[in-house]
Design a protein around this nucleic acid. Sequence first.
DNA 1: CGGTGGTTTGATCAAAATCAAGTGAGGTGG
DNA 2: CCACCTCACTTGATTTTGATCAAACCACCG
Lengths: 240, 240
Amino acid sequence: MSNNDFLVRRLRTFAPLNDTDIAAVEALPITKRRIDARETIVAEGDRINACCIVYEGFVCRSKTTVAGKRQILSVHVPGDMPDFQSLFLEVMDYDMWALTDCTLAFVPHDALHRLVRENATLMAVLWRDTLVDAAAFREWIVNVGRRPAVERMAHLFVELKKKLEAVGLAPDNQFEFPLTQTDIADALGLTTVHVNRVLKLLRQEGIIALKRNKLSIENYPRLVELAGFDELYLHQSPDR
Amino acid sequence: MSNNDFLVRRLRTFAPLNDTDIAAVEALPITKRRIDARETIVAEGDRINACCIVYEGFVCRSKTTVAGKRQILSVHVPGDMPDFQSLFLEVMDYDMWALTDCTLAFVPHDALHRLVRENATLMAVLWRDTLVDAAAFREWIVNVGRRPAVERMAHLFVELKKKLEAVGLAPDNQFEFPLTQTDIADALGLTTVHVNRVLKLLRQEGIIALKRNKLSIENYPRLVELAGFDELYLHQSPDR
DNA sequence: CGGTGGTTTGATCAAAATCAAGTGAGGTGG
DNA sequence: CCACCTCACTTGATTTTGATCAAACCACCG
């Protein structure tokens, strides 16, 4: 019963791991650290020497334009490795910060470099993970570029629901939703005021309820329909 | 003087390759194929068994929403590997098609799988390439989500200029720009009509000229300033 | 109990979309 | 070689979506 159990579990959802693979993952030196809500974990321009895995809580990534406008790029749930690309990209091109109080597990780059050189299965699994990450960005572009505000928000809700579901954190249609309305705005490329109005509409239609960082989806089929959600891009099943 | 020279040159921009590495790349079995402008190379939902490298011409990737709206995700220039992620993602989650007549080099997945298992340097270089690809998506999200139309278009122009420059295809401030106004609209999340007006404005200000798929940047500093362009995300230098 | 974020609402404005109608250039077939 | 067809581009008029500005309100917290 290793400390790295949660990581093994996550990686297994992508591909079968044998005993050697599991042993290799369990041998990884990880350090857990508590992070406060809103704390910056890494900032654009940083050079870092460890990757993190979300163990508990929510994390997100964002960039800020020269004009000072923030855009959220992704929201991460336990099991995600939101800065794995730092393994081969020397400088961070975005900020990563905690949406809630959370626990992160840090794995030094050199240990990971060794791992992916020595174990082809884990190389493939981890590489794949970074590619799934990229697939999510593609859908995020579509969302922000081509869907009207209501649909856009619906899409965000469904995406998060699917991701949480996959790690057992949204068994019913209710889950923790740690974004403020300002955060939602920054994720969707809208203003806070407009987010507030769209939210009001979704509530009035009886599609969702959102209170105190708790989102309940009251009419899931309708929400999925609104979002025009196609889960292909999540690549959640190993053969997709 | 191998057929795969262009690929070696490209990969070298990321990291120094030794003779073994170069030999390994040169041994890759590649097949070149001509593709017509507007032809679909791979479609969403496809399962493919080879990656392609753009040898000549322009290629782009896009997705289409359930509502039928198209969003262009990236534009690719010679040297790019726009579907390298198919190596580990079984199903394509986007369409890839030719903007111009072009020549693509195809490399079978199994040869690449072998290569990245046997050669750690090339694994790192190729993995990195897929991560740079993801970094471009992040900036694309910011562009579509948080920049007004004029700035947004300026950013697209500068990005393409930088990418072409890097492969020696835009030595001065003039280069082939193969997107129609409808394509630009789909890249920027705007309508064709609005693109036309923004273009008019940029022309009137003497910042660019665009005629017959030929873009000339008349006032580069101004364009860069408008775009709020920060090239960090391109990760073009090996230590960034 | 006052301060501080986050949320809500109203009024107004602006950017971009939509609708509608040409123009213009290249390509093809009679 | 011209007529016409198609596709890209252009422009005007109007509407819509979402932004901006401004002011409360509310809940939690120290």
